[in-house]
């Protein structure tokens, strides 16, 4: 496999109606239309999806591992922020 200059795309697949799109992986493609088609071939071949999003990897801004503590640590000891005091009605999925 030769290297290529095609940009990288992140693929999000919605497995069925009512669920959100979930990150499935990434791939190379020359443009958005072909990225969609490549995603269809790579990630939905066994009936995994009803909808696909592709996003250029370059436009994603990600938090850095170095910032992990300031970002996430303070949330650990504040249980009153957690919505654990509600009763979940029966039959509600995916909450």
């Amino acid at each position: 496999m030769t290297t290529n200059d095609w940009p990288l795309w992140e693929v999000f697949v919605r497995s069925r109606r009512g669920l959100s799109h979930t990150h499935a992986g990434s791939l190379h493609a020359p443009d958005a239309e072909l990225a969609l088609r490549n995603a269809r071939d790579l990630y939905t071949r066994r009936g995994e999806g009803v909808s696909i999003w592709v996003v250029p990897s370059a436009v994603i801004t990600a938090s850095s591992p170095d910032e992990k503590d300031p970002f996430f640590e303070p949330a650990a000891d504040k249980p009153y922020r957690h919505p654990t005091f509600y009763e979940i009605p029966e039959g509600v999925q995916h909450l």
Binding site: M1, T2, H28, D41
Partner: peptide
């Protein structure tokens, strides 16, 4: 194939 993605296609 020229690229892996196209090979799968």
């Amino acid at each position: 194939a020229p690229v892996l993605e196209e090979e799968v296609a």
